[in-house]
Design a protein around this nucleic acid. Structure first.
Length: 313
DNA sequence: AGGATTTGACCCGA
DNA sequence: TCGGGTCAAATCCT
């Protein structure tokens, strides 16, 4: 990693450590804890961005290049001829940035298009596969996989692969890299309201707890379309999150899963972070993600052990 | 009519 | 060989 970026990452890691410590001290206060959580995510995101920039700078973004190429070749419908290259770009999940979280609200502000559904071994629920609607027009490599959780019928385990490089006006928002600016930015940007602890800016808790099955069902129809406008509510993901440093925006559609087979699946160990929805709201969908290289590996995964301390929001 | 979803087939990695 | 991920024709929806 280039020296300047390494320094940034180093500083941000320190900041995150401090925030984590602070978080431990503030878990009695939901409001304070939420703020710390926001800070943690912002910092992690910054680290992520710095790494991505470093990787791009050192021309390590070859994978992205290959993915773009791949996307292009698979774009328009092909005739299933002998020259079929399907599968040539498989297993990307092993190399891409991955963010896994458990949510109850699949709305994340991004437009997704479902391209497949698969019954998974030992899981009673099928897994649905989504790609960004802008995969071909903007070479956005973001993908999302949704699988319904077994124990909680309204919860979905969502895995985001890659980050949005598209500039969907509905979700685009500037990213402020320095942690110091995070808090203010949360309230400054018109589209950053998802995190605002007040009014319509629903927090993870409010959105989630507000989900009644009826509401969920009502959303199904909308989500099934895969294309929804950005909503201020953000996601209702308060539960667990396993989050790597690669954030990704994401949106909603997997509610389709709700209509798919329904049965509890084995569950998926969850790690958490309560702020996932910040990605979906566009808060972190930075314009300069365009060079994001997907080079983060699982070693970069950071677990924001927030499920215990703040789950009660 | 155009775009999104469904779904069976195909392909690759383990 | 099997399971998971993707493709793409068919179908549905707006």
């Amino acid at each position: 990693m280039a020296a300047p970026y390494a320094r940034v990452v180093e500083d941000m890691l320190k900041g995150r450590d401090y925030a984590t410590q602070l978080q431990a001290l503030l878990h009695e206060s939901p409001e304070a804890g939420r703020l710390v959580d926001q800070i943690l995510h912002a910092i992690s995101r910054s680290i992520d961005t710095a790494k991505a920039a470093a990787a791009a700078a050192s021309e390590e973004a070859s994978e992205v290049q290959s993915e773009v190429t791949c996307a292009g070749s698979g774009g328009a419908k092909r005739k299933a001829t002998g020259g079929d290259k399907r599968g040539a770009c498989r297993r990307r999940t092993q190399q891409s940035s991955i963010v896994t979280k458990t949510v109850k609200d699949l709305e994340d502000g991004h437009a997704w298009r479902k391209y497949g559904q698969k019954e998974i071994q030992n899981c009673k629920h099928p897994k649905a596969y989504f790609r960004c609607t802008h995969k071909y027009d903007q070479q956005c490599a973001a993908q999302r996989q949704v699988q319904r959780c077994g124990e909680d019928p309204e919860a979905y385990r969502v895995t985001y692969i890659g980050v949005h490089t598209c500039r969907d006006p509905a979700v685009a928002a500037p990213l402020v890299v320095h942690a110091a600016g995070v808090a203010n930015d949360l309230h400054a940007g018109s589209r950053l309201i998802s995190f605002a602890p007040n009014a319509s800016a629903a927090t993870a808790s409010t959105t989630t707890t507000g989900n009644t099955s009826q509401e969920a069902d009502q959303k199904d129809a909308t989500l099934m379309t895969g294309l929804r406008p950005l909503e201020l509510e953000g996601g209702g993901d308060q539960e667990e999150v396993l989050s790597s440093l690669t954030p990704s925006g994401s949106s909603a559609a997997a509610e389709a899963m709700r209509t798919a087979t329904a049965t509890p699946g084995p569950d998926q160990g969850d790690v958490t972070s309560g702020l996932q929805h910040c990605y979906g709201t566009g808060l972190f969908d930075t314009p300069f993600n365009s060079n994001y290289d997907d080079t983060f590996d699982l070693d970069d995964i950071v677990v924001f052990g927030f499920d215990q301390g703040l789950a009660g929001y």
